[in-house]
Every structure is written in structure tokens, then in C-alpha cells.
Nucleic acid binder design. Structure first.
Lengths: 138, 138
DNA sequence: GTTCTTGCAAAATATTTGCAAGACG
DNA sequence: CGTCTTGCAAATATTTTGCAAGAAC
């Protein structure tokens, strides 16, 4: 994705467009699946681990990324929704974790089916990960 | 829960009923919510961390517990279903992770709504965790 | 100059394994 | 005995922070 567009996205989320942030955002935008901190670190040789960590923290705070918790820890993925704040995440979909190859797939055409929460629980986002065997591993 | 009953459960899952396993099973059965490795360690002072870890591994292999992946890592909870093997987990329900107090609640009356997976994906279990603010923290 | 950002190193956590001793049959 | 289980210590891996230097305004 071109830099101008990436800057625009950062701007829309009120994140100052530093060089590192643009690089990380580009990497996330290009990713075909949610990436772990370690994977991001490997793909971006110009930014230190702690830099990736802290930049992800900024992105989280500003609603640019969601976190997917699967059996391999946290993974990060760009939000595609258009909310610009800390509100309810309107772009959550199902993920699939392969127990054989430990890959997390993004099933982005499958929205998370909502549930009725008991009184008093207030949802901000949801994490739905199906575990099993992926097509490649069967 | 009485020891005889716990032994029976272990037996049904083809797990040899050692002292440690009975203690861990009792602790899990008494838990009101899924517990982390560290929490189990704390509650069971007679078993070492590695013992808890390895016993949980045995329980997982034999379908006695499920693992819930939330923002705080892995948590363990007794299965209530009655399958005795490695088959599809028939007792999965929604959990709620409070972003304020970091407690994971078990909404065991809310079953996980199923989704249609794309061709080739084979599900063994699913993990549905809603994040937000719990009744105590509002 | 003041504030925000970054890299490096290191601390703090969490997870997992080696190995020898013990329990069980 | 031979196999399975356990505790302790230690190795790994992962996540997070301190701090000083650099960039932005």
C-alpha cells in the first residue's frame, strides 16, 4: 500500500505517522493472516522488538488493530471497520487455528455470531477461534 | 467431590488415578471459573508447578479439560460433556474476559453458536471469549 | 527546550524439559 | 525389575520496562 494512504489511515485514528508506524502498518496491511509479535519482528528488520511491541500498543489503543488470542498467544491484525475510537469493535470475524501446523487463518467472510450476554456484562469485542485441522494438513 | 467419584471420572477417561491427579481434578471440579496454571499452582500447595503442568497435559490428551485462550493466556476447565475420547468437544460454551479486573467468567449456559467452516477445515473444538467489562467492575 | 519516539539491554513472566528418585504393580 | 509418575532445578520462550539518545515541533 502506498505511503500516503497509510498516513491517512494513521491520521484518521489520531496516530502520529512516524516512520516506524508506517512500516508496521504496511506490514500488517500486507499480511494474509494475523501475525504474532515474533513474526512481525522477523518481517520488519528495521524495528526492534520493543519498538514493535510499543507500536502495537499504540495501534491497539487507537483501535487500529485487534488482538486474536489463540493457542499460540496473541496475534495482531488490522481492523477493517471504520470506527475511529475505542468503541465497540464492529469488524470481528472468526479465525481458525490449525493444531497440526499451528497456523492461524483469518476467515474474514465469517462474522462472529452474536450471543446474548447476561445482565451487567458489557461487551467491547469478541474472540472466536475454531481449532482443528486445516485444509493443508489433512 | 468425594474421592470415589473423582476416581471414577479418571477411570472413565482411561487415566490412572494417582494422588496428584485426584487432587488436581478435585480442584478443577470445585473451581467456579477456568483457572490458569499459576492459579492452580497456588491453590494446590502439595503439587509442584511442573506436576500441575504435566498433569494438565494428561487431562488434555484424554479430553478431561478444555483450554480457554484469553488475553491472560491459557486457562483450564473441566469438561462436563460425556465423551471419553479425543473426539469433537461437545461441551463448549462462551466465556467472558473482563478487561478491568482480568477475570475470566464461565457463561456455561451460553453454548457457542456454530459457524459453517469453509471446505476442508475440520473442527475439533472452539474458543469463544467475549471481552469487556464485567458486572462487578461497572 | 519540551515532548514524543526509538533502540538497546535487561528485567519480569510464563512455559517447558532433564534428570534422578520414588511409587506402583 | 520395568514402567509410570513426581519434585526440583534449570532451560526456553515470551512479554514488558528502564533509560539514555535522537527526532519532531
Amino acid at each position: 500500500m502506498d505511503t500516503i494512504r497509510l498516513q491517512k489511515i494513521l491520521h484518521e485514528h489520531a496516530v502520529k505517522p512516524t516512520a516506524n508506524r508506517i512500516v508496521l502498518l504496511r506490514t500488517l496491511a500486507a499480511a494474509e493472516r494475523p501475525l504474532s509479535l515474533a513474526e512481525l519482528e522477523q518481517r520488519i528488520l528495521t524495528i526492534d522488538k520493543s519498538g514493535v511491541f510499543r507500536t502495537l500498543a499504540v495501534f491497539k489503543e487507537h483501535g487500529l488493530v485487534h488482538v486474536i488470542d489463540d493457542a499460540s498467544g496473541a496475534r495482531y491484525e488490522l481492523c477493517h471497520g471504520h470506527h475511529h475510537g475505542h468503541a465497540v469493535d464492529d469488524d470481528t470475524h472468526v479465525h481458525f487455528f490449525c493444531e497440526r501446523c499451528h497456523t492461524t487463518f483469518c476467515l474474514d467472510h465469517i462474522p462472529i455470531p452474536p450471543v446474548d450476554l447476561p445482565e451487567g456484562y458489557e461487551m467491547s469485542t469478541a474472540n472466536y477461534v475454531v481449532k482443528g485441522i486445516c485444509p493443508n494438513c489433512r
